[in-house]
Design a protein around this nucleic acid. Sequence first.
RNA 1: GGCCCCAUCGUCUAGCCAGGCCUAGGACACCAGGUUUUCAUCCUGGCGACAGGGGUUCAAAUCCCCUUGGGGUCACCA
Length: 490
Amino acid sequence: MTQPIRVRFAPSPTGKLHIGGARTALFNWAYARGRGGKFLLRIEDTDPERSTKENEVAILEGLRWLGLDWDEGPDIGGPFAPYHQTLRLPRHKELAQVLFEKGWAYRCFCTRERIEQLNAELSAKKERIAYDGLCRRLSRSESDARARDGSSFTLRFAVPEGKTRFKDHVRGDVEFANEEVEDWVMVRSDGNPTYNFVVVCDDVDMQISHVFRGEEHLVNTPKQVLLYKAFERQAPEFGHLPLMLGTDKKKLSKRTGDTALSDYRDQGFPRDATVNFLCLQGWALDGSTEVFGVDQLVAKFDIKDVNKAGAIFDIEKFTWLAGEYIRRDSLEHLADIAKPWVVAKGLATEAQLDARRDWYLAVVAGVKERVHTYSELADQITYLFVADESLIYDEPALKGAKKHEKRIETLRAFHSWLGPRVASGVDAASLREGAKQWVADQGLKMPALFQPLRCALTGQAGGPDLFDTMTWLGGPSTLRRIELGFERLV
RNA sequence: GGCCCCAUCGUCUAGCCAGGCCUAGGACACCAGGUUUUCAUCCUGGCGACAGGGGUUCAAAUCCCCUUGGGGUCACCA
């Protein structure tokens, strides 16, 4: 019988949730959900210097935003609690002691100075930098004696001879020569165990069956597999996910773009678009379907289908996908979900938007097909909220308007035509037809009126239908902006 | 530098494991055209890749080897 599937995401709260970490979590989650397994969350907070509660809270928040849920975790507990690594310290120490007694680990009394000097020598000789195993040759009685004297020591894992291999669902079977694995520090001189040790203790105790994580962990894996051997436990199956790369083809870093999931969320990338995009980095549903939901991910996801090569974070495709989701969203939902960005931009309060719900809905409908993110949506409707006098004409708009020699005369004439009609409340459709007729009667080309008019009304070169825009702006503001254009467009 | 991993259009990828259906498919981006008062959407078309070299085979993007290129990692961080 096969053991039950139990996977985990084990972030370290030393920073925000990384976009790559988010994908790792998503793939783990999808794997479990697709085959009746359990997905658990464990906080690897063993670095007291850099771990913070704020980061931890933010990471959980980020995962929830993605729509992931976990069966066991720090916030909900579970049969293998606690799920904070620091809380499991007594167990780690106990297990370290077991390995020490069994001879899988030994005390190392080497000072940091000696190690540094050793590394320097090794690097000067261009040799592999690794501990030389000096203290491994100490007899047990000698070791005990020095420990009794109060000499400070670390516990190092005694790497055996031979080869270590493990099953990797992404890369196939991987094999390392044990000579390449140094006798690494398992427990620090202050008594705190290190990552490679605790991660295995916890994965063993939590009965983790599959470990899917970033490729940067690949070289750690032999150390960990050896640990399973020492514990006389079967190692889990692994899957090392390809790295998400920056435009410089190096591991995604802040240098080449935003790395935190929250950065994209705050920029107003729709949640479902983000999940969809994350899937596309290193995995494909079928090679032709680009837009798909989490249900399809769960149904089709298999770790074996994940790409081996790293993927450059394709922000352009992400942006396109975001726009795709916005266009497919319902008007009501889009208007609601974008509200915080409109408010944050200082355009209006939520109450004001609610008071003019129909108006707001119409405005959102006007830009729905023109934006990719919620913040972009807020940007594009800004002109509707500013005072007529402080409307900013952007460069392309100004350039387009000024192409037309007779722009001012045209605008004045149109203003005279428009004034009485606006006053008598003519609707947008009639206005539109009337204006087109007017343009023809004047012997003008359409752009000769519309470009200067658009600039005066919106300050932008493009945008929704101008007569709808006039409706949103209202009569007085429409006429006022055209009048202002007489001066500002010369 | 040692060790390890990787290699299909500019980018994300399908195809590779089980060689022939591949004169290599889709998408983003880009370019051209159509629609539109503009922008966007939408529609049509175009550009564009199996890193190189050896094998194996009747047949290789697919299997093997080498080269080259890129990346990861070398902590008492995780």
